[in-house]
Amino acid sequence: MAHVRAQSATEWAEACSNAFVPLRVRTAEARFAATLDRVELTSSVSVTRVVSDGSEVVRSATTIAHHPRDDLLLSIHRIGSGRVLQHGREAILSKGRASLYDASAPYTLSVPGRMSEIVLQVPRGTVPTTGHSFGDITASALPPSTSLVALQNLLLSVDPQVPPRIGSMENEMLADAAITLLRAALLPLESRTPLRLEGHALAVAMRSHIDDNLSDPTLTVENLARALHVSVRQVYKVFAEHLNESPGTYIRRARLRRAHNELSAGFSVLQSAITSGFADPDTFTRAFKRHYGFPPSALKRMHQ
């Protein structure tokens, strides 16, 4: 795990070079600030959250000659706009859009203002496409798909505050699931079929979708099944086999945990109920008291 703050183009170039691949910052705003949070799932697969002011980073042919690398980077934009240039093409990025770029060839990433993105870095060999056909998929905005949404949810579920456990079975499985989803997201559009995950990868995708949509009061087992193209019966089966509880119980516990955190942070009881997906404050109060043994108002008073 690495957390880095940068306040100049020079600091940002060093931070990005250490986290991703060697590169340089061509331009940056006069008053520049950026943060980078990187988590290594394995020795070769990492997830990085980036927030920065406007800048342009370049990996040139000269840099590649001195520092060759064979990594693929998938950038999923969350806030602001940007563009990726590689192989003579340009991909325009906005919220929710993603693009792949290859560290073995020159590229430029340009963002005009404040932005946030999440980046998955994997070995180039994890994607079977090679040669000229591989070059055709870089610097092109990936089409929206279930697999891309699932991948984004999975990457967002990786908590940079949790100490790294490189080599752990959980992290190995997370890396495998991310690579599986990346491959699915890169399938040619004409041959794309609904993603059919199995086992732990499906459990991770389900858990990630729930955690990312807790504030939605319409989040149900049926909606979860529909989002991941599986049956309701399959949802229950996966939760029983891999999470040892029912999906309804998981959703309720996750909502109450979020509400507890928000009450502790100073949110009102009503705000905590709404942002945790409880449409009815009375239902929230009863559920909270049943789970924790005291009403949410008591926790609120403790932190005033």
Rank of each mutant, 00 (worst) to 15 (best):
A6K: 01
T10C: 06
E11Q: 09
A13Y: 01
E14K: 04
A19Q: 09
A19R: 06
F32T: 01
F32Q: 02
A33T: 12
L36G: 00
V39P: 01
L41N: 04
S43D: 15
V45T: 11
S46K: 03
S52V: 03
G54R: 01
G54E: 03
S60E: 04
S75H: 15
S81G: 08
H87L: 13
S94C: 06
R97H: 12
A98K: 07
L100P: 08
Y101A: 14
A103I: 05
S110P: 09
V111R: 12
P112M: 07
G113H: 05
S116Q: 08
Q121I: 09
V127H: 10
F134I: 05
F134Q: 13
I137L: 11
T138H: 15
S145N: 04
V149G: 08
P160V: 00
P163C: 01
E172S: 10
L174R: 11
A175C: 11
T180M: 14
L182A: 10
A185V: 05
P188G: 03
L189K: 11
E190W: 12
R192W: 13
P194E: 15
L195K: 08
L195R: 09
L195H: 12
L214Y: 08
T218E: 15
V221N: 08
N223W: 10
A225C: 07
V230T: 12
R233H: 08
V235M: 04
F239R: 01
A254S: 11
A259M: 02
A265V: 06
G266S: 02
S272D: 06
A273M: 01
R286L: 05
A287R: 03
R290H: 06
F294M: 01
F294Q: 04
P295K: 01
P296R: 01
A298W: 04
M302Q: 12
Q304H: 09
